[in-house]
């Protein structure tokens, strides 16, 4: 953290801030398969950190560990300055960590408000407090500058793919979360809807959240990410700032695990490990 950055640019203000999430030496095995080996990973408040890597690199395993649904075997998990042990999703939620899964986990037969609060409904004397939930839903969607849905009582089945993604993301931030992990949020979307969702992703970071974006699409990554972390066969091949690298270099790291221009396995400051 003491590396002087002369031409730091826009990211300079958050340069010296400690990462909100800091993983060190993470290991995870499924039987004999060592899926994550000694992985370090950082995510910063107010920044989008892209997590990229080929299929089977361990991206999903890493986020499931962060979310607590498949806890890590060993390693250091520091969140918001405290060493924590996250063993189940509820625990992660309590810390302020939310995951938006690729398949969205929305219920088509329920409306937007119902979905936003599903599993964590606000109740008064055992009865659903619809008024409070509607108000908070409106506030949250307004805070995300969402203007494309007609009514928050629309059934989710009637929404477009982009709108569904928006609802899923809104659900992640409605509880004043600090870290949001997005698993391939644009995978099934058209061009215009992808733009819409990427704007929303940027907005989350600009609102001060730490965003971890998993994506296969480097265009998306270069458009919104401040940092890029590359997993290669279960190891963290590189953690770098988007402005320091070019797309072809990232592709090289994704496919080979190293790049001469970047220098192989590095930490977040470009130093060799």
């Amino acid at each position: 953290m003491t590396v002087p950055e002369a031409a730091a640019g826009a990211a300079a203000t958050t340069e010296d801030a400690a990462p909100l999430l800091s993983l060190r030496g993470i290991n995870k095995s499924f039987g004999a398969v060592h899926v994550l080996q000694d992985v370090d990973f950082d995510a910063y408040a107010g920044q989008v950190t892209a997590l990229v890597g080929d299929n089977g690199a361990g991206k999903s395993t890493l986020i499931k560990g962060i979310a607590g649904s498949q806890p890590f075997d060993s390693g250091e998990y520091v969140f918001d300055g405290h060493a924590v042990t996250v063993t189940n999703p509820k625990h992660a939620n309590e810390l302020g960590i939310e995951v938006v899964y690729q398949d969205l986990a929305l219920c088509d037969n329920l409306d937007i408000v119902d979905n936003l609060f599903l599993g964590r409904e606000v109740t008064k004397n055992g009865i659903l407090d619809e008024a409070t939930m509607e108000r908070r839903a409106q506030e949250t969607l307004a805070g995300l500058s969402v203007r494309t849905v007609k009514s928050i009582r629309q059934v989710v089945a009637s929404l477009s793919g982009g709108q569904r993604q928006t609802v899923a993301i809104a659900r992640a931030v409605i509880w004043n979360s600090k870290l949001v992990v997005l698993d391939e949020p644009t995978a099934a979307l058209g061009v215009a809807q992808t733009e819409q969702v990427l704007r929303l992703v940027r907005q989350l970071a600009d609102n001060g959240l730490a965003v971890v974006l998993i994506s296969h699409n480097l265009n998306d990554v270069f458009q919104v990410a401040d940092r890029i972390s590359v997993l290669y066969l279960g190891r963290m091949a590189a953690q770098m700032k988007t402005k320091d690298v070019k797309s072809n270099q990232v592709v090289e790291v994704i496919t080979t695990g190293r790049s001469d221009a970047i220098g192989g396995i590095t930490n977040g400051n470009g130093e060799l490990k």
Binding site: D111, V113, E134, A137, Q138, E139, L141, A142, V146, R147, V149, K150, S151, I152, R153, Q154, V155
Partner: peptide, 9 residues
């Protein structure tokens, strides 16, 4: 947020 009504269709 005027567009975000709570009309149940």
């Amino acid at each position: 947020t005027a567009v975000l009504t709570a009309t149940r269709p």
